[in-house]
Write a protein that binds this DNA or RNA. Structure first.
Lengths: 187, 187
DNA sequence: ATTTTTATTGTACAACTGTTCAATAATTTA
DNA sequence: TAAATTATTGAACAGTTGTACAATAAAAAT
């Protein structure tokens, strides 16, 4: 496959850097393409050569975040080993610690004026984590659509994260993990 | 309180009608303020006198939809009377039938380029339905933040709705209610 | 019916958007 | 190193956005 053109690398770096600079002072939806290009010293036409919206640029960070989320899941985590393994077991995901680590990004992703795109990507990732590693020891219950169940469970966890976000991430990640365990024990 | 100025009523009606017309042919995020005003034969400045974004206009429909959702909950519904009343019991909500009724709107609300605002309003409404009617016979379990639990449960249901939306609302509302009951029985 | 209030209009302006195109510069390939 | 490729630039255009203001029309209040 063809080489990566250095010019493209430099342009994208400049645009990324400019976006990060701007994000310190204003929300994603208030940042214009012209503004980014002015700071990045990149021609506006060049922006359109690589992206179509400001959000596309942010989307590239998002992939990194999702990688960290996937890695979080691999980390050994013993706290909740006693939980029932027969169902989708969200508490084995170190997702709250991941969110805590990236909370500045989640403030953007979950802000009300941002499109649902990122939320859906996040939901998909969590669904994969919940099912991917569990379908071995987990046999789908009578007549339940596994996909539906996964969406149910994954979005439930996102519900906790949304609440956490709305509380401005005041509590510690460990606290939320404990809460989740308690909720799951309720039956 | 002061009368409702007839001019305002007429203007808003014209704008609403224009938005609905446009929505038949293109997604919400592709509709410009200028376009709406052109069709509605309303000066663009007048738009800004009442709204700030195209989304605000859509938001007024959204309120009606939420009213219907709240009403859905009041309707008698016997199918699932046998479910454990000790926990938040989402299956008593006729939310799937409501979504089925308004699916053309939910296609907009849940489309990926639309801001999270509507999703949050929906989540809040479902949370209220789940808690409002249940806190009587429901005593909060040991050390669980009720608000967190409500977000968990409400967003879980929205997870099912999202999946349903992504499947283009192929299944019947009754099927989803049955699935939910089965998922809840799993423990 | 007349006066008072105020919603709407038309116009204007600077900034942003999305796109096109030829000219130029930087990078890769041979 | 020279030639070929292609990313970037600058300029231009029609359309949108958000805002402001005086003039006008429509409605409410008396």
């Amino acid at each position: 496959m063809g080489q990566v053109d250095l010019r493209v690398v430099k342009t994208k770096e400049a645009l990324h850097k400019a976006l990060l600079t701007l994000l310190k002072n204003k929300p994603l939806e208030a940042i214009s393409i012209s503004e980014i290009c002015r700071i990045a010293k990149v021609n506006r036409g060049t922006f359109y050569l690589h992206y179509t919206q400001v959000g596309d640029l942010f989307g590239e960070y998002f992939k990194e975040i999702m990688d960290d989320l996937a890695n979080s899941y691999q980390e050994p985590y013993r706290h909740v080993a006693k939980l029932n393994p027969k169902k989708l077991n969200p508490s084995t995901v170190r997702i709250f610690h991941h969110v805590e680590r990236y909370k500045e990004y989640y403030r953007i992703i979950l802000s009300k004026n941002v499109p649902l795109t990122y939320y859906y990507l996040l939901l998909e990732e969590v669904k994969n984590l919940l099912t991917g590693n569990l379908e071995k020891d987990y046999k789908s219950a009578e007549g339940i659509d596994p996909n539906l169940q996964a969406s149910y469970a994954a979005n439930a966890i996102l519900g906790i994260i949304i609440q956490w976000y709305q509380d401005d991430f005041e509590q510690k990640a460990n606290y939320l993990n404990e809460q989740l365990v308690k909720i799951l024990r309720l039956t």
